[in-house]
Design a protein around this nucleic acid. Structure first.
Lengths: 205, 205
DNA sequence: TGTACATCAGTGAACGCGCGTTCACTGATGTAC
DNA sequence: TGTACATCAGTGAACGCGCGTTCACTGATGTAC
C-alpha cells in the first residue's frame, strides 16, 4: 500500500481504474461517479479536477481500452508473420482474449453507449485497432484470385461481427445463457468454416 | 384517440408500449418507470397495479419481443420450405429484419441486462426462437456427410453470433460508426461465405 | 329496472436516497530570491 | 539554507433533482337481488 497524504499522487489513473472495476461489476448502468471517487479514497468533487464529468471518465476508460486492444491486435498480427493465415487467426483469437482479460475495458468500449466519435483521440485509436484486422484480412486475401476476392473491409467486418457476437452472446452471462461450447472453440471453428468458404484453407481438415 | 375516464382500459399494454418507446429512444439506461407512467398518462404509482416494478416492466417488454421474434423466425422458416437452404437463409434475414423493425424490443431483449432466465416464461419463449434457428441449421446440415457435419447447435450458434454482431456493430449507431456496407448485404454475404465453407452451396457463385 | 355493495384501478402526497455538480475553502507542494 | 508566496489538488457542505416505492384514499365498474 502506497502512503499518501493530502495529495493523491496519481488520482486520475486511480479514478479510471476504479471506474473499470465498477463497470465490470455492475455494468455501465450501475457505474456512478460518486462511487468511483469513494473507491479511489476521494471526495466526488475531486473528480472534477481531472475530468469534465461522468461521461468523460467513461470515455477515458474506453480510450485506454482501445489502446490496449490495438496493441494486442498489432502484437498478434506481428507474431503471426510471415504467414498471412497465422497472422489473421492470431488477431481473431486476440479479440476474444482481450474481451476475457479486460472485461471492464470491453464494456466501456462496446456496451457503455459512448460513441467512438466522441473525441478525435478516441476515434483515432479505435481506427488503429480496426486497421490491424483489416490489414490482416487484406494480406490474407492476396491468396484469393482478384476476381473472386471480397473487399478486405467486408472480409474483416464479417470476422469482427462474428467475434463480437460470440463475445456478447456466449462469453458473457447475458442472454445466451451459457454457451453449448467454449467461446474460444466456437469462434475458432466459425472462423475456420468462414475461411474455408473463401477457399483460404483446404475444404477438408 | 380513445376516450377514457378514470380507468384506463388497457394500462398494462400501454405501459409496455411506452417502455418500448423510451428504451428505443434513450437506451435501457435512460428508461425510467416514472417517465413510462407519464407517457401512458398515469401516475407512477399506477404502474404497481400491473407490474412488480421497473425490472418487471422491462422483462415483460423483452418477453413480448421474444414472442414476436420467435413468430417471425417460425414464419420465415415455414416460408422457405421445402428448401432447407431457403428456409435457413430466410431465418437469417428475419433476425436482422426483426432488429430493424422492433428496435425497442431488440434492446430490451439483448442490451437491457435482463437475464433470459429471469422467469420460466422468458426462458421458454427465448428457447422457442432459438430452436427455430437450430432446426433450420439441422435440416440444412443433412446435406453434409455425417462425418463432416458439425453439430447443429454449433452451426446455429455461429450464425446467431454473426447476425448479432452485424446488428450491434453496424446496424445501430454505436461503436462501428457507420458500416462500410449495408448491414443486410454484410450479413447475407457473410452467411454465404460461411455456407460455402460447409460445402452447402457451390464454391463459386 | 333500480339499488346496495364489493371490487377494482386509479390518485396524490410523501418518503428517503443517491446522484452529479458547484463553490468557497484550505492544506500541500514547488519555486524565486 | 531559509523564507514568502503562487499554484495546485484536495475538502466538505450544500444544491436541486428525479428516481423508485409506499400508503391511505377515492372514483368507477360490475354484480346480486
Amino acid at each position: 500500500m502506497v502512503k499518501r497524504g493530502y495529495h493523491h499522487g496519481n488520482l486520475r489513473q486511480a479514478l479510471v481504474d476504479a471506474a473499470l472495476d465498477l463497470i465490470r461489476e455492475k455494468g455501465p448502468t450501475g457505474f456512478t461517479l460518486s462511487e468511483a471517487a469513494k473507491q479511489a479514497g476521494v471526495t466526488p468533487a475531486a473528480v472534477y479536477r481531472h475530468f469534465e464529468g461522468r461521461e468523460d471518465l467513461i470515455a477515458e476508460a474506453a480510450r485506454q481500452g482501445y489502446e490496449i486492444f490495438a496493441d494486442l491486435m498489432q502484437y498478434a498480427y506481428d507474431k503471426g508473420q510471415p504467414s498471412a493465415l497465422a497472422a489473421f487467426e492470431a488477431t481473431g483469437r486476440a479479440y476474444l482474449a482481450f474481451a476475457r482479460k479486460h472485461p471492464g475495458h470491453y464494456i466501456a468500449m462496446f456496451e457503455s453507449g459512448i460513441s467512438v466519435n466522441r473525441t478525435p483521440e478516441l476515434a483515432a485509436v479505435a481506427k488503429r485497432a480496426w486497421d490491424v484486422l483489416e490489414k490482416a484480412a487484406s494480406d490474407l486475401s492476396q491468396h484469393i484470385p482478384p476476381e473472386k476476392r471480397p473487399p478486405a473491409s467486408m472480409f474483416s467486418a464479417h470476422i469482427w461481427a462474428m467475434s463480437h457476437g460470440v463475445v456478447e452472446l456466449f462469453a458473457r452471462n447475458s442472454p445466451g445463457t451459457q454457451s453449448p461450447f467454449p467461446p474460444e472453440d466456437l469462434l475458432e471453428s466459425g472462423i475456420g468454416v468462414y475461411l474455408r468458404g473463401l477457399g483460404l484453407i483446404p475444404p477438408d481438415s
